[in-house]
Design a protein around this nucleic acid. Structure first.
Length: 544
RNA sequence: GCGCCCGUAGCUCAACUGGAUAGAGCAACGCCCUUCUAAGGCGUAGGUUACAGGUUCGACUCCUGUCGGGCGUACCA
């Protein structure tokens, strides 16, 4: 509909002979008195045309040629808004479309033909996923789903590094526990991993191969065992959250196939790196005047910092032909982003193909006080624990309900008792209620005949239809902004509009024609709820 | 010190990215279950959008400054 409005307004604007047309905005008015759609174009044109907005609005409306089957009225209001009202005929047509599109209602083609890579979670396998990782995991997966709904071909990728210091310490920690279990002297490493899962891994080694590794030269076999077990654990956690990765990318492979070397050589050829104090530096100050210091790419020890593989990795992604690469990471990693962009730009790639979803930290609150989690010190709350308490649906919902850009306060005690009064149930409840009605109605009435939707005249019914029609645009906009919480806001509105309808308009026991019309409406609502919850990865139960 | 993000009802957060009277959920108070699921509904109360300026038809949104919080600012990731 918005498309149509833009077209007809554009048509009428020919008479204004504008060199360039400012963005025409069509928006949903908050107040119902302001119609079903509204344009601010007259106000935005006031300045260039040196005329007052209402006069401009008059001219535009006067020249408007619109389809009276779709639009019932056009009014000028307030400082110069042009307000449109839809016909009921249009609404009923659209309602019919919702049902015929079914599970596809809400899909759009804004990313049609695009290959999108979403990289997320990307936690090194040093321990179970924690509540802190949860926001990343759920956000990344849902953004991926949003891209799928807008036509993109999406891949989900997990990037990890099993070659660093962290992983060595992990291996040493397991070795220490392993030796302890066999009654030997085990030297627990400085800053080692203290979690109980380390002992579990050691125990499974003992069970499988006994004391075979007592004389092992280094921590490698322990590290490998730990990596295997922890990855299995992470995968099962992700699976519980309905997250399925398409690929796991090991940073090590960038060294193995020479990409790291190649990257630094290319930058050197372009005179963007130099040697100083035995290290290799990237001239980041050339790109960003605000920076007071260049960035080290290779330490004097010969070991690259994380920025170099990051650049090589993103070049690799683009080499794989993706039109868009989305990274999901926490606010603490934001500093690397400009360096990576400058890096790939220098290598000849288009930096606009790389985009970042940054989310603010999850602040954990326990006993009314914030506290810091550390995988190393084992004072963390795992995602599995959380799902044991509240289930996967609530877990996903919790991480999605807020804008990524605000701090998420996570009160553990509250989350645990949230079961009964969690907002996710409000949405699921609406779906369950509809399902319940449909079960009772379907055998008794015939829905194969023509259904007279024009019997839907109650304000609650009309509002409900209008609410549903906002769904496709909500999805498109959430995808464009990479902000899944807009879907939740929408679903809340929808559930609330349905509840009003449920309260005002009975279905069972009404005249047959009305039962058919209202049931059709209810079916459409259930469909939209399912579609929306599906994007969020949350189930739509038929009974609660 | 510098950079990024944030500051909205008692609490946790929205506000379609500059639109019309700033909205929800918890918490509080008062009502509503012999009718399709009360995990619900209706009503009351709660605001100088941290503060001070500025930009314009119009500001929670943009600009400047101040205050407060988070995260960075490593030859850690």
């Amino acid at each position: 509909m918005k498309q149509y409005l833009v077209e007809i307004i554009g048509e009428s604007l020919k008479q204004f002979d504008l060199d360039e047309r400012p963005d025409i905005q069509i928006e949903d008015p908050k107040q119902p008195e302001h119609g079903d759609a509204s344009s601010n174009i007259a106000m935005t044109l006031a300045r260039p045309l040196k005329n007052n907005p209402r006069a401009i609005a008059q001219k535009i409306v006067g020249g408007l040629d619109y389809d009276e089957k779709k639009i019932s009225s056009v009014e000028i209001a307030g400082p110069g808004f042009i307000n449109f009202r839809f016909t009921e005929e249009y609404l009923f047509d659209e309602l019919g479309k919702i049902l015929s599109l079914g599970a596809d209602f809400g899909k759009s083609s804004s990313y049609e033909g695009k290959r999108v890579l979403v990289e997320f979670v990307s936690a090194n396998p040093t321990g179970p996923l924690t509540v802190g990782h949860g926001r990343n995991a759920v956000l990344g997966d849902t953004v991926a789903r949003l891209f799928e709904w807008t036509g993109a071909e999406v891949e989900r990728e997990y990037y990890f590094n099993d070659a660093g210091r962290q992983m060595r310490v992990l291996g040493e920690s397991v070795r220490a526990r392993y030796l302890e279990l066999l009654g030997k002297e085990g030297e627990f490493p400085e800053g080692g991993y203290e979690g109980g899962y380390i002992s579990d891994i050691a125990q499974s080694l003992v069970d499988e191969i006994g004391d075979e590794l007592v004389e092992a030269e280094d921590e490698t076999p322990f590290k490998e065992k730990a990596e295997e077990e922890i990855f299995a654990d992470i995968s099962s956690t992700l699976e519980r959250m309905k997250i399925e990765m398409d690929s796991y990318f090991n940073e090590q492979s960038l060294y193995d196939d020479g990409k790291i070397e190649e990257t630094i050589q290319k930058l050197r050829d372009k005179d963007l790196v130099y040697d100083k104090d035995g290290a290799v530096w990237f001239k980041t100050t050339e790109f960003d005047k605000d920076k007071d210091k260049d960035t080290v790419l290779v330490k004097s020890t010969g070991e690259p910092t994380y920025r170099l593989p990051d650049i090589a990795y993103h070049a690799n992604k683009l080499d794989r032909g993706f039109d868009l690469c989305v990274d999901v990471f926490g606010a603490d990693h934001i500093a690397t982003y400009p360096d990576v962009l400058n890096g790939i730009k220098s290598l000849g790639y288009n930096p606009e193909k790389v985009d970042v979803v940054v989310y603010q930290f999850v602040t954990l609150v326990k006993d009314g006080k914030p506290f810091k989690m550390s995988t190393r010190k084992a004072n963390f709350v795992t995602l599995d624990d959380l799902m044991d308490e509240v289930g996967a649906d609530v877990t996903r919902f919790f991480f999605l309900m807020r804008s990524p850009n605000t701090h998420l306060e996570f009160d553990i005690a509250q989350a645990k008792e949230a079961g009964e009064k969690n907002p996710v149930f409000y949405l699921q409840y609406a779906h369950a209620r509809i399902s319940s009605i449909l079960r009772k109605v379907e055998d008794e009435y015939d829905f194969s005949k023509d259904i007279d939707l024009s019997l839907l005249t109650h304000p609650s019914e009309i509002t409900l239809i209008k609410t549903m029609l906002k769904f496709p645009e909500t999805i498109a906009s959430a995808a464009r902004l990479r902000e899944p919480h807009h879907v939740i806001t929408f679903l809340n509105d929808l559930a609330s509009a349905f509840t009003a309808f449920y309260h005002d308009c009975r279905i069972l026991g009404e005249d047959e024609k009305l039962v058919q019309a209202r049931t059709t409406l209810a079916k459409a609502v259930a469909q939209v709820l399912r579609n929306g919850l599906g994007i969020l990865g949350i189930t739509a139960p038929e009974q609660m």
